[in-house]
Write a protein that binds this DNA or RNA. Structure first.
Length: 663
RNA sequence: GGGCCCAUAGCUCAGUUGGAUAGAGCGUCUGGCUACGAACCAGGAGGUCGCAGGUUCGAGUCCUGCUGGGCCCGCCA
């Protein structure tokens, strides 16, 4: 890893600046990586920054610093370029030797890294199968958790289950009003069909049914009300549906290597009176108040800060303007809105509510990790502590920015500016469908034909289900695997095909920056060539094969190779070395992770991993390891390959991608 | 009307707290498999970084304005 070297270089140069120019305040400067290795391994542009205040040419400053820095461990040469860059050259053999032996990890330095952090993601309405929109959320959320964990942050992953929401109410309405089923009838369906798919279709039928006659919506209102108050057949049916669908979602996510620590049920927030408590707090601080007049009479509302504080004067349409500035938290019929319950949830996460859930073990996940759930029943005494985080990330698409902003605003109003600051809306753009893919799904673009894409809609049943996509990918991968590995058993083939499918889809979800709307095209997503997950896996598989063959043919293990490095002259790493390019790039993983956490931009991680794989593939093609006759070159190459595969495997793991034995 | 996001090669997109010659994949054209596996590699063609100003040693990147497109602003979630 490279961060530790960068810090060392930074500190040494900062010292030199202080000494050379008698400066107490050295400006912040970064240790960068030059575009090519011939320009150096690391570079600093601080001479440009100092030029103005020192009234001196960057070139002169760079030269003075180059000679005054002195010896930096691990650095063999420091050069000032004519235009003012300071380029540094590393002791390459020592660098690789150290890394390949002790897997140099940089300890988390920031104190923030030790602060407990909650990542909430997925949060799919439990009333139908998960689709590609949910997939982007889960892929981002899961990767965020992995990346934070990588740098030493204690992480708790939560999946919020909105079991009392309109969407669940709708599906209950569907079973009752359209299919006239009771709890037992629903159970029969659940036991005899692909239930999440069944509900997917039923949900869109309910939507149509609502559109037939306006008064059909009364069934929804009544169901919602019953859910809120609990008890009775409605609650029983809803609870049953929710449980089955949640399990289906978890199974889908497990296929993608996505797991959780805790399922947070909205129902428990209500039953354990979290909302009552939150409501007290909000009322006490005047953050919400009872509106007595106008359209919102009888509602408890929250005032909305509209950024600008002087937007009063104009507005002919004054009534509307006034009303749009209040957000309903409790409806006039006494039912709290989604945002009210979410406020309570956020308060709890930050340890500000003064209450806790009860917990029960929900199950054990594929990787052996226990999954806990909130409950209103007795708590399992063996449950670990949850909540009380000092930082929370809510992974939610950008359409909910408005509501997320309200959450922060509420925290600030209640006198918790620091918590507001640490409540981060991890925002990303939605996934839509390309016209070609929508057509494949049987949708004739009519009104939407002019738009550049077609929006996924659970209500209309318009979208690509994650399980369908995975099945398609697995079938395709399976055929490819079979072609190349005729000796595989059925099980081996399925397993590897599944790993490849997951790589393809997770990489696809990560390669775009989060601010970019993904126009999902099935053809594009099914690709295994070029910038794709399988390409990355393939690079590692190739590296692994080298070591298999070394073992097979020469009885040499990775350990043997590394052990022999001490006495081996390292010409292979000198000068313009393709091997060094790979090694150095591989070492940058920790630097990239820092950048990713700063920017919350996982495309940087994806592109880094791809670039690294690309570099290795080029090297692999040009230089042989097994057939290299010069023993020293062979050793160093093998050592470089060992480091490469360790690092790319790590990078892939951060994206939830496994490396197949063969493919 | 207000807020947020997007605009870079034919298409889809990267481009790090401003830094060295604007990159990748796909597509296209040319070449490379008796295997450390071609799910690969090498090479060619392809650019007014939406437009106009500004900031500075330096702008695809920061600021302002504009154009085009998308999303949000509900007693839905």
């Amino acid at each position: 890893m490279i961060l530790i070297v960068q810090r060392r270089v930074h500190d040494a140069i900062a010292d030199a600046i202080r000494r050379q120019y008698a400066l107490t305040d050295v400006p912040a400067f970064a240790v960068e990586v030059p575009p090519t290795r011939t320009l150096g391994d690391l570079a600093v542009t601080v001479a440009f920054q100092l030029a103005r205040s020192l009234r001196k040419a960057p070139r002169a400053i760079a030269q003075e610093l180059a000679s005054s820095i002195g010896k930096i461990p691990g650095v063999t040469r420091i050069e000032a370029t004519p235009n003012g860059y300071l380029n540094l050259y590393l002791d390459r053999p020592a660098f690789l030797r150290e890394r390949v032996r002790s897997s140099v990890m940089s300890a988390p330095t920031e104190s923030a890294a030790a602060e407990k952090t909650i990542v909430e993601h997925t949060a799919i309405n439990p009333n139908k199968a998960a689709h590609i929109g949910h997939l982007r959320n889960a892929a981002l959320g899961d990767t965020l958790a992995r990346v934070l964990q990588f740098r030493g942050t204690p992480i708790e992953i939560q999946n919020y289950i909105d079991d009392l929401g309109v969407q669940v109410a709708d599906i209950v309405v569907g079973f009752r009003e359209l299919e006239h089923r009771d709890l037992e009838g629903v159970r029969q369906i659940a036991d005899s069909t692909r239930f999440d798919y069944y509900c997917w279709d039923l949900y869109s039928r309910v939507t149509e049914w609502y559109e037939e006659r306006r008064d059909h919506l009364e069934a929804r209102a009544k169901t919602l009300h019953d859910l809120e108050h609990g008890g009775g057949e409605t609650t029983a049916i809803a609870a049953f549906i929710v449980d089955r669908i949640v399990r289906a979602h978890l199974a889908t996510m497990a296929r993608l290597n996505v797991g959780y620590d805790l399922l947070t049920y909205e129902g428990d927030i209500v039953r354990l009176k979290f909302w009552t408590r939150a409501f007290e707090i909000l009322k006490a601080q005047g953050a919400v108040y009872l509106q007595t007049e106008g359209k919102l009479a009888g509602c408890w509302v929250m005032k909305i800060d509209e950024g600008s504080d002087t937007a009063e004067s104009i507005e002919p349409d004054r009534e509307n303007a006034e009303e749009s500035r209040e957000k309903v938290i409790v409806r006039s019929n006494g039912v709290v809105t989604y945002i009210g319950k979410d406020l309570a949830n956020q308060f709890w996460k930050l340890g500000l509510l003064g209450r806790d859930f009860n917990y029960r073990l929900f199950g054990v996940q594929a990787n052996g990790r226990p999954l806990w759930s909130t409950t209103s029943e007795a708590s399992d005494p063996g449950a670990p502590p949850f909540g009380r985080a000092s930082r929370i990330y809510n992974v939610i698409d950008s359409r909910q920015m408005y509501l997320q902003a309200l959450l922060s605003q509420a925290l600030r109003t209640l006198g918790h500016p620091r918590e507001a600051e640490n409540s981060i809306h991890f925002s990303y753009e939605m996934v839509a469908l390309s016209h070609a893919t929508a057509r494949e799904l049987g949708y004739e673009g009519s009104e939407e034909a002019k738009k550049p894409f077609i929006e996924v809609s659970g209500r209309k049943g318009l979208g690509v289900k994650i399980d369908d996509l995975l099945d398609l990918l697995i079938d395709k991968a399976s055929a490819e695997v079979a072609k190349r590995n005729p000796d595989f058993t059925e099980d081996e083939r399925r397993r590897v095909a599944s790993q490849i499918a997951v790589a393809a889809i997770r990489y696809f979800m990560l390669k775009f920056s989060r601010g970019k709307l993904i126009v999902f095209d099935i053809e594009e997503a099914l690709s295994f060539e070029g910038e794709t997950g399988p390409y990355l896996q393939y690079a590692v598989v190739r590296a692994n094969n080298i070591f298999h063959k070394l073992q097979e043919r020469e009885a040499l293990s990775e350990r043997d190779v590394i052990g022999a490095l001490d006495r081996a002259p390292a010409e292979e790493l000198e000068g313009d070395s393709a091997l060094w390019d790979v090694v150095f790039e591989a070492a940058r993983l920790d630097d990239v992770v820092e950048q990713v956490v700063r920017s919350l931009e996982f495309s940087a991680l994806a592109k880094y991993a791809f670039g690294l794989a690309q570099m290795f593939n080029a090297f692999y093609h040009r230089y042989s390891i097994l057939n290299e006759e010069d023993a020293n070159r062979k050793r160093w190459r093998a050592a470089g390959v060992a480091y490469f595969r360790a690092q790319l495997t790590r990078a892939l793991d951060l994206m939830g991608i496994e490396v197949p034995v063969r493919m």
